[in-house]
Design a protein around this nucleic acid. Structure first.
Lengths: 249, 249
DNA sequence: TTTATTTGTGTATAATGTACGCAATTGAAA
DNA sequence: TTTCAATTGCGTACATTATACACAAATAAA
């Protein structure tokens, strides 16, 4: 049976029933609050870190949470994630990409809340954290525990996503200071992938890729022979992007 | 200023303000109708196809749309996508995976509607389409036009996702009949990747992967030397999954 | 029987990945 | 000063994989 109310929304056109009032159609749909959660990764002391706060929900008292917020009524998804990121880190011009949407019925104690997970990579030293409330700080990605909501699952998913992604595109440079040594670069790859790599082959691979710029400068204050410093040639990379497929370790 | 209404939701605990009433917190969030849209891919006559219907919105009269529906209030995201798929194709046990969420403010004429895009792969011959209403049928992925909503963008995204994905995992077998020749398999890869592959090297690659089962049967009714038929060894693949990284063409 | 077409199986070569050797440079210890 | 430990920078030998291409065998149609 089609109710008269439903009929109001319909018009008949060449034997097909067309809905003329899209607003009234949509008005019948159930609605859900939507949020973004950002897995913000950084790299320090040869460890991959993720930025967390204490949950401000009594229900998750003492547990750790990703940075997130509701999406405003007239806000684009990416913009909401970027807002969360910049409000807390003060950073702009940062790598940020959508990873996956989580909509489990019981993931939020306040009722069904959908969240769109984003992954962000940034250089810890480049940014003074803003709003230190709720014990905002960096946690080792390995050995996380005591997470609020389904945030353990979200971090795991973002971390796996990152592991794949850095083998397709040289995103890892977003995590390093502008000037870095090959050793730092290798430590980063080893930390993210969780494997040991041969130093000499690693070096060869990155030199043949040919977007490291030799700065003719050297490390300082290291208790051994200092390594050369390089920077990443973003321009050259952008031009040759298409050719890329895998970094492959 | 904190309103007295807000204070009701708060409790103070070790200098941190905790929100005790999660439901009331969430009640303040804007809410949005959420839908799923399925890019359902099939393979026929050496062409990659996608299943579309005519949009039933007057606003998009004559335009083509992915299969989609609202997500019910107590329905998991994957379940909603699976429901859309099985209602229309009658298929169960089908490959289905979340790809990306689209939430552009103006993507739906009825107001903001979030959609979670899913990608599905199935064998066209295995399934009688159900509900032929709205001119449900298979379209060539190449040369799509006249799409409703942002569905062109969604199909493009799902197609790129598929191109990457079949090089990491042998998903393509979901698109083939149970028994297939190496030529069919190669045609499929060529259709999806949009490249020509060397027949002999292609064969070598798949034999060294070692999960094709030789059925000792042959093609029939072909106007040339018939090729051997194979089936995919899902069991063996599942066991060796971890070792995988890329198929690489 | 011949021809066109396609399958099935190779091989030769180039490119890439992997394992590892060794001199050079630095800070710190002897 | 000399020696040592640690690390960088550069190389080479070998194994593995990718790529290009040749040719016989099987089938339908002429």
């Amino acid at each position: 049976m089609i109710s008269s109310d439903t009929l109001d929304k319909l018009s008949i056109n060449s034997n097909v029933v067309l809905i003329s009032d899209a607003k009234r159609l949509v008005a019948d749909y159930p609605t859900v609050p939507i949020t973004v959660d950002c897995a913000i990764f950084g790299f320090e002391e040869n460890e991959l870190k993720v930025l967390l706060i204490r949950s401000d929900l009594k229900h998750f008292e003492g547990k750790w949470s990703l940075l997130g917020d509701m999406i405003k009524a007239t806000e684009e998804l990416d913009a909401a994630a970027y807002r969360v990121l910049s409000e807390r880190t003060g950073m702009s011009d940062v790598f940020l990409e959508q990873v996956k949407t989580f909509g489990g019925l019981d993931r939020h104690p306040g009722g069904r809340v959908l969240t769109i997970a984003y992954c962000s990579l940034l250089n810890i030293r480049h940014h003074e954290l803003k709003i230190y409330a709720n014990e905002l700080h960096w946690h080792n990605v390995k050995g996380l525990c005591n997470m609020a909501f389904d945030h353990q699952e979200i971090v795991d998913e973002c971390y796996r996503w990152l592991q794949k992604r850095i083998q397709e595109h040289p995103l890892a440079f977003n995590l390093l200071p502008e000037k870095f040594s090959l050793r730092q670069l290798q430590n980063l790859y080893e930390a993210i992938l969780g494997v040991e790599l041969d130093r000499r082959n690693f070096r060869k691979k990155f030199f043949t890729m040919d977007f490291l710029i030799d700065l003719e400068e050297f490390e300082e204050d290291v208790p051994h022979r200092p390594g050369k410093l390089y920077k990443f040639d973003f321009e050259k990379y952008e031009k040759n992007k298409r050719k890329w497929f895998a970094i492959d370790f």
